[in-house]
C-alpha cells in the first residue's frame, strides 16, 4: 500500500506493507538517524516527532501515519545547537542514542520546561548506557536554560 507522509517538511509517497513498523520504513527510506535499540519501546532511541509530539517509532505502524507529519533529527533546526553543547560536554560517546534524545529534548524546549527534575521525568524513556546521563544533564541544562 502507499502512504503520503510529510517527513522533515518534505511530502513523500512511501510504499509500505500494511504491517510495516514506522521505524523500519524510515530506515528503509534512508532516515538513518532513526535507530533500533530495543524493539519494546523502552529505550527511546527511535524517537521521532509525530505531528510535533515525540513518539517511539518502533511502536507505531507505518500505515497509521498516512496523512501525518514526521520529524527526525535531520529536520530539527534546533538540533545543531543542542548537538554542539552535548559535544562540548563529551556527552555523545557512542552516539547511538543521541538523535532520539535530541528529538525529545528539543520538544521540551517548546514546552519551556525549566526544572531539572521535570526534565528528567520527561526524558526518562531515553536510555543511555555510555554516559551515565550526568554529562547529558550538564548539556541539557544549558540548552534549556534550567533554573539552578
Amino acid at each position: 500500500m502507499k502512504i503520503n507522509v510529510t517527513i522533515n517538511n518534505e511530502k513523500k509517497e512511501l510504499e509500505i506493507a500494511p504491517d510495516d513498523i514506522l521505524l523500519d520504513v524510515l530506515r528503509r527510506y534512508g532516515y538513518h538517524s532513526v535507530r533500533r535499540g530495543c524493539d519494546t519501546g523502552m529505550c527511546g532511541i527511535c524517537t521521532v516527532l509525530l505531528d510535533g509530539k515525540p513518539v517511539p517509532s518502533c511502536s507505531i505502524f507505518a500505515a497509521r501515519v498516512d496523512g501525518h507529519e514526521i520529524t527526525t533529527v535531520e529536520g530539527l533546526p534546533e538540533a545543531k545547537e543542542l548537538a554542539k553543547i552535548l559535544a562540548e560536554e563529551g556527552a555523545d560517546q557512542c552516539g547511538f542514542c543521541s538523535p532520539g534524545l535530541i528529538v525529545n529534548t528539543v520538544y521540551l524546549k517548546k514546552l519551556k520546561i525549566k526544572k531539572i527534575e521535570e526534565v528528567k521525568i520527561k526524558l526518562i524513556g531515553n536510555l543511555c548506557r555510555c554516559t551515565g546521563y550526568v554529562g547529558q544533564h550538564r548539556a541539557i541544562e544549558k540548552f534549556l536554560g534550567v533554573e539552578k
Partner: peptide, 12 residues
C-alpha cells in the same frame, strides 16, 4: 500518569 513508562510511550 506522569510516571507511567516514558513520555514517548504515553504519547501513544
Amino acid at each position: 500518569s506522569e510516571t507511567v513508562l516514558s513520555f514517548q510511550m504515553r504519547n501513544i
